Measured scan of single mutants.
Amino acid sequence: NQASVVANTLIPINTALTLVMMRSEVVTPVGIPAEDIPRLVSMTVNRAVPLGTTLMPDMVKGYA
């Protein structure tokens, strides 16, 4: 099973992502692959992402 990116904290809308905000976890449904974490750093989220939420491609500006 592939690990996905999961919010390690509440990420407010329009926040630039940092490494400490994200962790990898095997979850269903599958979200952004964990190997993309380095690429996500400094990208911003377009909605509030609660703790434990899987990051989906449409949640990160410029990812999809």
Results as ranks from 00 to 15, higher is better:
residue 26 V to H: 13
residue 4 S to P: 01
residue 8 N to M: 10
residue 10 L to T: 14
residue 10 L to I: 10
residue 64 A to H: 13
residue 2 Q to W: 10
residue 38 P to T: 12
residue 14 N to V: 03
residue 46 N to Q: 10
residue 45 V to P: 02
residue 37 I to S: 05
residue 3 A to P: 09
residue 60 V to H: 01
residue 38 P to S: 12
residue 19 L to F: 11
residue 6 V to D: 00
residue 6 V to H: 00
residue 37 I to K: 05
residue 23 R to Q: 05
residue 57 P to K: 07
residue 45 V to K: 00
residue 18 T to I: 06
residue 31 G to Y: 02
residue 2 Q to Y: 11
residue 34 A to E: 10
residue 52 G to Y: 05
residue 44 T to I: 10
residue 11 I to V: 08
residue 61 K to S: 13
residue 33 P to F: 06
residue 11 I to A: 01
residue 62 G to I: 04
residue 18 T to W: 03
residue 59 M to L: 06
residue 22 M to C: 03
residue 5 V to L: 03
residue 51 L to D: 09
residue 28 T to R: 08
residue 50 P to L: 09
residue 3 A to M: 14
residue 11 I to E: 01
residue 1 N to Q: 13
residue 4 S to Y: 03
residue 38 P to A: 12
residue 25 E to H: 11
residue 55 L to M: 12
residue 58 D to W: 11
residue 59 M to T: 06
residue 5 V to H: 01
residue 24 S to D: 08
residue 60 V to R: 01
residue 22 M to S: 00
residue 29 P to E: 05
residue 3 A to L: 14
residue 24 S to C: 04
residue 23 R to W: 03
residue 30 V to M: 07
residue 5 V to M: 01
residue 49 V to C: 04
residue 44 T to L: 08
residue 7 A to W: 02
residue 32 I to Q: 00
residue 11 I to Q: 00
residue 50 P to W: 06
residue 30 V to I: 15
residue 58 D to F: 12
residue 46 N to R: 08
residue 32 I to P: 01
residue 26 V to W: 14
residue 14 N to D: 13
residue 19 L to M: 11
residue 59 M to V: 13
residue 19 L to C: 05
residue 2 Q to R: 14
residue 62 G to N: 13
residue 32 I to F: 03
residue 31 G to F: 03
residue 46 N to V: 10
residue 47 R to P: 03
residue 17 L to R: 00
residue 60 V to G: 01
residue 36 D to T: 08
residue 47 R to K: 12
residue 52 G to I: 03
residue 7 A to Q: 01
residue 58 D to L: 07
residue 21 M to R: 03
residue 44 T to M: 10
residue 12 P to R: 07
residue 64 A to K: 04
residue 17 L to E: 00
residue 21 M to I: 03
residue 50 P to V: 07
residue 24 S to R: 10
residue 18 T to K: 07
residue 17 L to P: 02
residue 39 R to V: 09
residue 27 V to M: 06
residue 17 L to K: 00
residue 30 V to D: 07
residue 45 V to W: 00
residue 14 N to Q: 09
residue 41 V to P: 02
residue 40 L to N: 00
residue 53 T to V: 11
residue 25 E to G: 10
residue 26 V to L: 14
residue 44 T to F: 14
residue 7 A to F: 02
residue 40 L to A: 00
residue 51 L to N: 12
residue 62 G to E: 12
residue 46 N to S: 13
residue 18 T to S: 10
residue 13 I to L: 10
residue 39 R to I: 14
residue 12 P to H: 09
residue 35 E to F: 13
residue 6 V to N: 00
residue 34 A to W: 11
residue 46 N to D: 11
residue 35 E to Y: 15
residue 32 I to A: 01
residue 45 V to F: 01
residue 6 V to E: 00
residue 19 L to W: 08
residue 34 A to Q: 06
residue 42 S to F: 09
residue 51 L to T: 12
residue 13 I to C: 04
residue 9 T to W: 09
residue 21 M to Y: 05
residue 29 P to C: 03
residue 64 A to R: 03
